[in-house]
């Protein structure tokens, strides 16, 4: 069975932030929340690299483990989703997440920050596929439409890869071999306890 992953080829990312914008638009993400973001490491220094990061849909996800109400579930595609009907907005997933993915729609204390929101790998939530209720709470469900997350699909430099982990790892390997360098599969060790050996 295919295991969905994200892979940002930092040697191709030009920090255009189009993935960030595409995600916000495709999923009608609430104000103040960025499900995806681009972080530039060593900005302005020789060898700087930009990495596009969102929820990595971890294997044995820490957010799901610490949730006091067990509102998370992992799909057969290995996508980590959650139910906003069950979420109590306590913030524990936010403490546990290695990638800063969980966010809350309201500023303020944890008594009133609202339901957690994070990247859904463009595959909605527990509501019926492609229903208005699903879209309103979680955004689009491109996986159910036979597509991949929009951030990756529209990446202009083909830096951000999404899809079956084995296939995108193979694509990345081929790139590294061909061009002779690569800065690594950012976050893979932390999220999937594996890296891409080249």
């Amino acid at each position: 069975m295919a295991r969905m992953k994200f892979l940002c080829d930092a040697d191709r990312c030009i920090e255009c932030n189009a993935c960030v914008t595409a995600c916000k638009n495709e999923n009608e993400v609430p104000w103040g929340i960025n499900r995806r973001r681009v972080v530039t490491i060593n900005d302005g220094k020789p060898g700087e690299r930009s990495v596009s990061m969102a929820c990595m849909h971890c294997t044995d996800a820490p957010c799901a483990a610490v949730c006091p109400v067990d509102c998370f579930y992992t799909t057969a595609d290995a996508v980590v989703l959650h139910s906003k009907d069950l979420c109590i907005g306590c913030g524990y997933c936010f403490y546990a997440c290695p990638f800063g993915a969980p966010q809350y729609p309201k500023v303020g204390n944890f008594g009133s920050r609202g339901k957690m929101d994070k990247c859904t790998y463009c595959s909605g939530g527990p509501e019926a596929d492609l229903s208005p209720a699903e879209f309103q709470k979680y955004g689009s469900n491109r996986l159910a439409e036979g597509k991949l997350p929009l951030c990756a699909e529209m990446c202009s430099t083909k830096s951000l890869l999404a899809g079956d982990g084995e296939i995108i790892a193979q694509i990345y390997k081929e790139r590294v071999v061909k061009r002779g360098y690569g800065s690594g599969a950012w976050g893979w060790q932390t999220a999937y306890k594996e890296t891409i050996a080249i």
Binding site: G47, G184, A185, W186
Partner: peptide, 8 residues
């Protein structure tokens, strides 16, 4: 181009 690039 990646002689001193930051690496994971």
């Amino acid at each position: 181009p990646t002689a001193n690039a930051v690496k994971e």
